[in-house]
Amino acid sequence: MSGHRHLSRARRLARAVARRRPLLPRPVRVAAAIGCASLAAAIGLGALASQAPSVGAQAGDEPPAATGNTPTSPAASGTATGPAPPAAIGAAPPTVTGSEPAPAAASGSDPASATPGQLAEGRRLFLSGCASCHGEDARGIEDVAPSLRGVGAASADFYLRTGRMPMEDPQDEPQRKEPFYDERQIAALVAYVGSFGGPPIPSVDPAAGDLSVGFRVFGELCAGCHQIVGRGGITTGAWVPGLQEASPLDVAEAIEIGPYVMPAFGDQLTQEQVDSLARYVTWTRQPDDVGGWGIGHIGPVPEGMVAWLLAGAALLLTIRLIGERTTR
């Protein structure tokens, strides 16, 4: 009996409190605020604790990670089977890899030693897929597409393997997409275009490169357009691709031929520097984010968005919760 009365009194009291404050009484709100803050600080300190090991570890275990899963040495690409799609693209067909600089890989890959059957198929594919812009004799058509005589196997391999050719509209900027031809067809086309002369497909071995050399050379020659962590950007008259999908062979070929508006750097760089660049570019896929979430690796723009949209919004919400909302 008396217990029931107590209960109803407590209920009445609770109701009175609720009527006075629309949401929660202020002591509760303040306590909740302090609780949230302590939690946040605790998580922050936890983040600090979890940060330490990655600093110590990265110097030691990073280089193998950069090169372990990229089948890019001439020997590896001979087998042409990688698990990941980019790796499969990176491993060029055995018939076209290697070439003069790498004696170990001279297994019929030179365009000069391409089989007559391959050349015939390449000619056939060229006439059906390329000649409408590049001309039946591959000498190009003025104001439409350049001559392919002398561009070499390196260029044909780069453009076909990265899906940049064929293009729908010759006025477009060539963009990376799924390759239009399969590996055998690409080998045939590369052999055919390579038969007119020009640079062969270069060899590259990122494992032989040095990451710090690659970082330095990339900063000197590449970052002005490709951004220092290879995130791409725009330059006058061109959209510069990010390099996270580029295989080491793509890097070596692009250095050799200078696709689209990019200059060719083949003459300025030693083989070690090319290997180092390929290694650095592969490394930029997952750079050392010792500071936490990388937010795109392009610096202040996403940082400003976090400052406004994440921190600013969270703090506005906080003061809305712990402050009064009516203007009366």
Binding site: A33, L39, A41, I43, W293, G294, I295, A311, I322
Partner: peptide
């Protein structure tokens, strides 16, 4: 004081979890 702890906690959280100017 609650607000200070929230600001400090949020900034420490960002400092520990979201990379800035790497």
């Amino acid at each position: 004081i609650g607000l200070f702890l929230i600001v400090a906690g949020l900034l420490l959280l960002l400092g520990g979890l979201v990379q800035i100017n790497p």
